[in-house]
Design a binder for these strands. Structure first.
Lengths: 150, 150
DNA sequence: TATTGTTATACTCTATAACTATA
DNA sequence: TATAGTTATAGAGTATAACAATA
């Protein structure tokens, strides 16, 4: 285990990150609510707007049990934002896919995410580059499995 | 409204922050679960370990409706981690306060939050200072109301 | 026999509205 | 009358366990 860091500098950075996390979350939930979606529904819709995905795979991306995905996709499907398709290669599998309206909603959702603008607009390009490099190093440069959202 | 920033650099920084947010959240929930607490319970307990707080004030900190706090405090109280006290100054008010066991649990919870160590240990002190200053500027330096957690 | 998705169940969190006891 | 806390209710997310269809 790494050495315990409880110096004031580290503690302040952790607190600042906590504030960023809280603000990011609040804005994500708000953007979802403006489209009458819950956070979980928005995350799944964003995922499916990229490519059709088996139910099981959605659960892995969301880090939740597959049984939960059934309900979330049910609600998105009831609103016509998502549809279930058979997988020609394996008849056990159901592929969840965003409809055209679903993709449109996902796009507007992304655009309404203010987080990209407000806070980062405070920084110059050089500063954003420095921030990017620090975050990369912090996260250990392992972009194997990008997260589906907050 | 600020100018829309959709350049690759900004988009990458937003994605990196999203990854940080996801990891922070996952570790917070995991740390809470190790003490058989939900995320909401852990946040409230952390809050009350600092000082006794009126129910209404807890709701404001959590940004949720006061009626929800009743249930969360109920469950913490049933486990002996929190207690309700009258407010001598206003008999309508109930102050929720962490018990000694509650404070002990909150302290162990804080200590088990790996986030302070793992990711930030990758950075030198100079880098952590730069990161701190960038985050401060990003957040606009308004430490009026520190967030209660993720 | 193992895997995929679903159903059934129970718990927690959430918002809304109505209620009580104070102020 | 206004406020603090609670209760009642309904909806959503979550995990667990059991099930049908398919591999």
């Amino acid at each position: 285990m790494a050495a315990q860091r409880t110096d004031p500098l580290t503690l302040e950075v952790v607190e600042l990150i906590g504030t960023v996390v809280a603000r990011y979350h609040a804005e994500y939930e708000q953007a979802a609510a403006e489209h009458a979606l819950t956070g979980a529904q928005a995350r799944v819709l964003g995922l499916l707007s990229m490519e059709p995905t088996p139910m099981r795979r959605i659960a892995q991306k969301l880090r939740c049990e597959p049984s939960n995905v059934t309900g979330i996709v049910d609600r998105l499907e009831a609103r016509g934002l998502v549809e279930r398709r058979p997988d020609p290669a394996d008849r056990r599998v159901k592929l969840a896919a965003a409809t055209q309206e679903g993709r449109s909603t996902a796009r507007r959702l992304r655009e309404s995410l203010e987080f990209a603008r407000e806070p980062l607009a405070q920084l110059t390009e050089v500063e954003r580059t420095v921030l990017r490099d620090l975050l990369r190093r912090m996260l250990g440069e392992d972009p194997a499995e990008p997260s589906p959202g907050p």
